[in-house]
Design a protein around this nucleic acid. Sequence first.
DNA 1: CGTACTCTTGACTCTAATCAAAGTTGGTGG
DNA 2: CCACCAACTTTGATTAGAGTCAAGAGTACG
Lengths: 236, 236
Amino acid sequence: MASIHALNHRSSTLPAPPPAPANGRASLLPGFQGLAGAGLIVHAERDAEIVAQGDRAEHCYIVISGWLRTVTLMEDGRRQVGLFLTAGDLFGWDVIGEYDMSAEAVTDVVLRRVPMRCIDNLAERDPDFARRLRRMGAEQLRAARERMVLLGRMTALERIAHFLLETASRARAAGGDPVDLPMSRADIADHLGLTVETVCRGLSQLRRMGAIALDRHGFRILDRSALRAVRDNEVH
Amino acid sequence: MASIHALNHRSSTLPAPPPAPANGRASLLPGFQGLAGAGLIVHAERDAEIVAQGDRAEHCYIVISGWLRTVTLMEDGRRQVGLFLTAGDLFGWDVIGEYDMSAEAVTDVVLRRVPMRCIDNLAERDPDFARRLRRMGAEQLRAARERMVLLGRMTALERIAHFLLETASRARAAGGDPVDLPMSRADIADHLGLTVETVCRGLSQLRRMGAIALDRHGFRILDRSALRAVRDNEVH
DNA sequence: CGTACTCTTGACTCTAATCAAAGTTGGTGG
DNA sequence: CCACCAACTTTGATTAGAGTCAAGAGTACG
């Protein structure tokens, strides 16, 4: 655990529009042009907590660069990582009341912090924006249901293959392209409902199968159909 | 598996307002007064499929009586039950495009079927309704995240205790009150990411501990604090 | 460089799944 | 109305997959 609340406030007007957003499946989705220029740019360094579980949800965040994770903690320390977010992704816009999870920086990260009121106001004034908000909510829920199947019904190796394919697809990586994997094995484990050791063993197994090339901070897909077969349980 | 699509269309105007809605945590939430009188009343009998995974989402449903389950199927037959819905609960209002799960009748069930356009129209015209929609979406997502922790990180017995406490609370049952459990053990298992046998064993164990009284279609909580202790892992 | 951390692999354990067999129950038809 | 049957539930025995504990290898950072 590193420095907590290393948030440095910066300029107020936007320096650049968010880079072409990963569409993948999470909080993301293009939108939010209506908010261009709103909010402050904030920085957070690796492992800093950006919002805490239980905080009143008064802001939402747009990731400009770097990676975030959302984390839910149980009393006894068991941890569930909900989502990994990166450039173009949105966080917190869908919460009302208090955050039910915290958001932490996986890498140093730059965010635009937008007051929730802006969202609410814009949603009242602009029916098109409100519609987009609903669409994003529907997408979030779809993704959440998919994760329930993963967590409730998939084996360790299936979950790992699924995670790699999804991560590659969010990075828009073609086969063989290197894909960034900035989060620790522990983060991946807590995201997939597994232990660190099981994640390692699964990754090694996929490497030995020739499905992926692997190093600590990234991977490449060598045999996408093999990886898909593992994810879809067409192989043991 | 029983009769498929046993939907009988009936009168068009509402016979009675939905009974005091269970608040629990799912699709529910009081709202939807703005839709009073809209839509058709439809009936479905036990195990009938009300909507299928992949159908275009053109309606949403308000449960008037009986119980539904939402079901996601994997290619190879593994099944995940998302939610159980009962009187006052809502289904499908948050989906855009195609349903990503099916809805099936757990018991014979009476529903009001409301065209999705009504929701959309009302949301455009009535900012208060739109706000309520957003609040319901936020609540759905909160519940979904809670289920991810359950599926990813809780033991079998913790999941079962959690399910019983939640079901009792949705039924607004005081301690010792009988609580309906109309779904099969297999449904419960697929809801909790377990097998039928593990669910049975867990329920029996809680009965032997004196935490609950149990029969096939219901239970009573005899020792709520014991049940909470199991859910919260203060006991093995 | 050295040290602390993360990652990987191995050995063993344990929880929950699987396989198997009774016991119940509710519905149906005689 | 009763008996039978199919489906569901429960319990037992065994297995398997993932967790735990432990140790070594690789890295990153000061």
